[in-house]
Design a protein around this nucleic acid. Structure first.
Lengths: 295, 295
DNA sequence: TGGACTGATATCTCTGGGCGTATGGACCGT
DNA sequence: ACGGTCCATACGCCCAGAGATATCAGTCCA
């Protein structure tokens, strides 16, 4: 790739003149006087080494050399303009790709809303969503595999990551419909001490897990873990089967199973937090735009 | 088509830097010092409105905007270079098309040699040869339908056309083998006065026609025209059939018919001239090159 | 902690060339 | 013959920017 011999400027003048075939008109279109245009064309012809226009009295026309150069000039001009526009779009985050990791439980709650709000303002961005639990999300954010994560209770002090709370919700007790406590409108937490618990494995989301066990500890007992399940839907199924009870974020109410009851708990002050996470020094403008559309 | 916002110069620096991903090395490849390169990139980034490179300590990399701009820049650079080369080729006459009109009788004589010599030096030119008689050639030269003509005895004072003699040859008598004069090595012109002549119609080539009749007039007689034929081959066939005799350029000897004899004439001074003709003000460089390859 | 390597910044010089006005010269029409 | 049209030329102004050198600042490594 050699250094460019022809200034794009001259090629523009050339292209316009080739269209108008009239120095005066072309100069007007270029917003300059006619003599400068003559000069630019002359310079261009000097560099090419051959005349580009036949100057016959009364009208001018392209030479063979001009006919060869014209399409190249037009393509180059259009190409640069298009590239510039694309670069600006990409630079402003109007286009590009946004890889979002999200906890499965959020697919039915915050994710659709956030995604819709974002895509309304940036319809040209291609979102690339992938379900993953909390710990892998944090790892993926660090190694750049995802741009944004949606997770619960990040908790730990990740200095390189930023977090923005997207939703907070109370906990609810998940009970089999036949459970004695299901007849109450609100379940005192301590009364769950006797039932085995069905929870997600701690590795899937230590923050939430610890918060739940802390909750129980606050009520004076240590939950007895009966089963683990990797999805909230499975948790509900196991509860329905009578294998235990659970504590879960309120949005689990979305799961509608006949044999499962969701009840508020007392005290009802504890709330679980859903946050968007991103790499603080991520220069991707699409990420910045995503954060800007967060409520 | 808007005025170009990005100098091709900067795009070149950008493309090289995007390849090297190292300011120092890129600057060396560009043949400049490192600070000017930093400046050019900065200017470019200012115009784009977004950074094109991430400057992380130790290494730089393209931003999303840079990734969008790079292919456009490369295409534009390569396109302009290719267009420039094509324009130079066309301008120098190394490529292009050459439309050649030629008299049919020359297809077997001068045309192959001239064409071969030309194409040896300008193999990229596409020749476009078309058979036509003298008068149409002159018309075609004027209206730009052909670039070069190959014809006999243009004669008339065509101020706008240039002529370059390509071949001169004597006349020969064309006789039936059985003709009494065929036994002579050389035929005195005056002795043809008694035989009817077979000639090409005057309209096909007034120059040659008039030269032949002048030749006869010089020998003291006016040729009695028996037949016209539009091709020399037909002339020979008619002569063979005993319908008359003819006078023709010596290269007619190429026609080999058993019943036809070609004999030199006395006086043998008259010569017919084959010339290449072109439009004097034709700016087509291919034409100039063609003329330059003439012997 | 000091040196190597990276890129950024500051500052200067200098010139290419962009643009203007004024003018010349060729050709056209009336 | 004369004005009108069109392009080229001449000349001058002026600045963007290309290039250099010198220096600074951050990172990494020994």
């Amino acid at each position: 790739m050699d250094r460019p011999e022809l200034p794009l400027h001259h090629l523009h003048a050339f292209a316009v003149l080739a269209e108008e075939l009239h120095f005066g008109h072309a100069a007007v279109r270029l917003g300059i006087a006619q003599p400068p245009l003559s000069q630019q064309i002359r310079r261009l012809e000097e560099r090419v080494g051959h005349p580009l226009f036949h100057r016959e009295p009364g009208r001018i026309s392209l030479t063979a050399a001009g006919r060869e150069l014209l399409p190249a000039a037009q393509r180059a001009l259009a190409g640069v303009a298009a590239g510039l526009a694309a670069a600006r779009d990409a630079g402003s985050g109007r286009t590009g790709r946004l890889r979002i990791g999200f906890a499965a439980s959020l697919a039915l709650t915050v994710l659709p809303g956030l995604l819709r709000a974002f895509l309304e303002r940036f319809p040209e961005v291609r979102p690339d969503i992938r379900e993953m639990t909390t710990a892998p999300q944090l790892a993926a954010l660090h190694d750049g595999t995802i741009d944004v994560g949606l997770l619960r209770e990040p908790h730990s002090g990740e200095a390189e990551l930023g977090f923005a709370t997207v939703l907070t919700e109370p906990f609810v007790a998940v009970l089999p419909s036949a459970h004695p406590l299901a007849s109450l409108r609100s379940v005192p937490l301590a009364r769950l001490a006797d039932s085995p618990f069905v929870l997600l494995p701690r590795a899937a989301g230590p923050g939430l897990y610890d918060q739940i066990t802390d909750l129980c500890a606050g009520a004076g007992f240590t939950p007895r873990i009966g089963r683990h399940a990797v999805e909230w839907l499975t948790v509900c199924a196991l509860v329905e089967a009578g294998l235990g009870v659970s504590l879960a974020p309120a949005s689990i109410r979305r799961v509608r199973l006949a044999g499962v009851a969701f009840r508020a708990i007392t005290p009802g002050t504890a709330r679980t937090r859903v946050a968007a996470a991103w790499c603080r020094d991520d220069p991707n403008p699409v990420v910045a735009n995503f954060l800007a559309t967060l409520p």
